[in-house]
């Protein structure tokens, strides 16, 4: 079966991982800009990082027949450093213009602080001006429900952004209902130990339906699994779900959301 992974950090993965993606039918991936696992010292480090995801990864991916797109943005974790964040914001237009960058992301909140909110608001305004798709990172653990609500309030206040052009990622059982009610897309992240399991992701599709959901691995530099989407699709199969439903959740849904950016073409 064909799968699109709409959230995976390939800068942190090996060439063997690209090969595994290719074997498993994951031939289109999108990579959001995020925290590197440590706080970067200067805006130059972000410049190099954006070059990496706009230029280097698409070439690496293409060797394996994989189509690689990216999202450009200032992550919430480093947004607490306002002076650094404002320097990074100035770079965004240059990289949003690149031919494989498909929107602003992943932006959002990490600890729900006032500085994080200020930088998120600035990026929502850039997204609105440029009519960019938006990929939202929500906080983890006990901060998630509060953060998701704060983020949705901020987006609703930016009336130029259509909810149907925003995907709110790392949703869990207690945030999905409100995200859907507000007309946003939502992402489910499969992350061993700390986030959702394949079983819970399939429960979610059974409970909330298959509309407006994209499932991703968020595979990165920490304990994570680039084949998590395949394993989740297998869990659906094991429960007797139809192939068409699996194709919708793992291919047609992400294709529908991402294709709102004319630069995006799925393999």
């Amino acid at each position: 079966m064909k799968i699109i992974d709409p959230h995976i950090h390939m800068v942190s993965r090996t060439t063997d991982d690209y090969l595994a993606l290719a074997y498993c039918g994951i031939h289109t991936v999108t990579e959001p800009a995020f925290w590197a696992g440590f706080d970067r010292l200067s805006a130059d480090s972000f410049y190099d990082y954006f070059v990496h995801i706009c230029e280097v990864e698409p070439v690496r991916a293409s060797r394996f027949g994989i189509c690689h797109y990216c999202w450009i943005g200032m992550n919430s974790k480093e947004s607490e450093n306002l002076s650094l964040a404002h320097q990074v914001l100035k770079m965004l237009p240059e990289f949003l213009d690149r031919k494989t960058s498909i929107g602003i992301g992943e932006i959002g909140l990490n600890k729900n602080s006032r500085n994080e909110i200020q930088i998120l608001q600035a990026q929502l305004s850039i997204a609105a001006q440029r009519n960019e798709l938006v990929l939202i990172h929500t906080p983890h653990l006990e901060d998630k429900r509060k953060g998701t609500r704060l983020i949705m309030d901020l987006i609703r206040n930016e009336s130029r952004i259509l909810p149907s052009r925003v995907l709110i990622d790392h949703a869990e059982e207690h945030t999905i209902g409100e995200i859907k009610d507000n007309g946003f897309w939502y992402g489910l992240t499969l992350y061993p130990n700390s986030k959702g399991s394949p079983e819970r992701a399939v429960d979610t599709v059974e409970i909330f339906g298959s509309e407006g959901v994209c499932i991703n691995s968020s595979a990165d530099w920490s304990v994570s699994d680039p084949l998590a989407t395949v394993k989740c699709a297998n869990e659906m199969r094991r429960r007797g779900h139809r192939q068409e439903l699996m194709d919708k959740v793992f291919y047609h849904n992400p294709n529908q959301f991402l294709s709102q950016c004319p630069k995006f073409k799925a393999l």
């Binding site: 600890k111 906080p139 006990e142």
Partner: peptide, 23 residues
């Protein structure tokens, strides 16, 4: 999930060394 969530509504002033515990 709700029992383990922060029930407050206001943003925090600064991140400083606040961390997520899971409860």
């Amino acid at each position: 999930q709700e029992a383990l969530s922060d029930p407050t509504r206001e943003p925090i002033e600064a991140v400083a060394d606040s961390k997520a515990y899971g409860a």
